[in-house]
Design a binder for these strands. Sequence first.
RNA 1: CAACUUUAUUGUGCGGUCGCGGGGAGUGAUCCGUGAGGAAAGUCCGGGCAUCACAGAGCAGGAUAGCUGCUAACGGCAGCCGGAGGCGACUCUAGGGCUAGUGCAACAGAAAUAUACCGCACCUUUUGGUGUAAGGGUGGAAAGGCGAGGUAAGAGCUCACCGCGGGACGGGAGACCGUUGCCGCCUGUAAACCCUAUCCGAUGCAACGCCGAUUGGUUCCGGGGAUAGACCGCUUGCUCGGCGGUCCCGGAUUAAGGCGGCUUGAGCCUUUCGGCGACGAAAGGCAUAGAUAGAUGACCGCACCCGACAGAACCCGGCUUACAGAUAAAGUUGCGAU
RNA 2: GCGCCAAUAGCUCAGCUGGAUAGAGUAUUUGGCUACGAACCAAAGGGUCGGGGGUUCGAAUCCCUCUUGGCGUG
Length: 122
Amino acid sequence: MRQFSKKYVCIKKDREFRWLFKNGSCTVTKAFICYFRENKRRNNRLGIVAGKKIGGAVQRNRARRVIREAFRLIEPELASSTEKRYDFIFVARSVAVHMKSTGILKLMRKNIPGKLAQRSDS
RNA sequence: CAACUUUAUUGUGCGGUCGCGGGGAGUGAUCCGUGAGGAAAGUCCGGGCAUCACAGAGCAGGAUAGCUGCUAACGGCAGCCGGAGGCGACUCUAGGGCUAGUGCAACAGAAAUAUACCGCACCUUUUGGUGUAAGGGUGGAAAGGCGAGGUAAGAGCUCACCGCGGGACGGGAGACCGUUGCCGCCUGUAAACCCUAUCCGAUGCAACGCCGAUUGGUUCCGGGGAUAGACCGCUUGCUCGGCGGUCCCGGAUUAAGGCGGCUUGAGCCUUUCGGCGACGAAAGGCAUAGAUAGAUGACCGCACCCGACAGAACCCGGCUUACAGAUAAAGUUGCGAU
RNA sequence: GCGCCAAUAGCUCAGCUGGAUAGAGUAUUUGGCUACGAACCAAAGGGUCGGGGGUUCGAAUCCCUCUUGGCGUG
């Protein structure tokens, strides 16, 4: 298990990861599995998990970078569309290694906003 | 030209926009410059560095194993010697000692470090005895091989040649090589125990050093409070009595956390000199990651063969393993041409 | 990152020290027992001993190397 995220909007602690896996909602695509839950902070927070399953260090780094880049692009859209802020954890799957970040971004646009809306309705 | 052998280098490149780590400049917005590998890998060896231990020596345990050198050191490298393979360039080689001792050698075979089954010969006699190791067969291995002499039949029993071992002599720095009118013929296995020679203290940056409060734990010290009652420990088993503790404050210690260690080091490049070479010496030049859940991605343009294996985590020297291709040098063999 | 183990039948393990037959339990299949099953009894099949190389007459075992799992350590 390997965890990563950016400095000022990161999820670091092991217990936070566990908490999200247990209590968060999730959505699944071919490239990643996304867990998310509303938080009470000012920022959206990000955590990425790239397990040993998907390959060596090169493959894991690649997956992390691609997901992080895609999240960087979609984050302003999420922030502007709703007042609420969320914690996200992306678990990389082996397909993500061979994808471009634009491909991941499309998957995120397609899946995430809808799911967020669903949760806030219910 | 074809088929090879060896060695070395390289590992998409350039420009633009956004994004990330470290550094520098600035009050600041921001700007400048920099940012993974030959294996960064496996963690198989050797060091540096750090803490602990340590008078010296020995035993035990581990490692290495032709020689001479190189080196901080090595199980690495260079050159040479011996052995094996190849027409050759060349490649591979744990390569000390079973003639120090002990152990092991299944099955087969008469017999496995010793012997006599079938044979062969002689003597007795119809069955044994004696002498043999030519031949047969077994096995990885059967008292060196082969020929002649010799003999009842045979045998290094004797002789010539060859092989191996020892001694002597000569050459070499040494491993070794050569000669020999001398002495011998000894199974294999030490990646079996072991012997000989040389080397080795242990643990590893999650080492180690420093900082650290309104927090928690632990034990100790100092001061104060309480000793009405309760509880715990000690005081011999019980009762009484006694002593210490509980609560508060301060200090020490430790854990989460932060900083250092953290990149200038046996450094890299060029030239000259010494050396067959590994390498060493001198001169000149270069600044080249330092993260701490862990930094390199996305998009656009151009070119081509459309880019392999793959990501630093204290640092070096090697080894081993993975690797699409591209380039250069030296050399061998074969064919053809001149 | 550092330190250290293991790999043998479908599954769980022994054999490795000290070299020459790969074995046990379980599972599978067949037969018996039973009215039928379970249990029990008897038998059978099933092994590149993780891969490669070396030492040896001979390697699951000894040596080297690679691969795959697992453990410890803040």
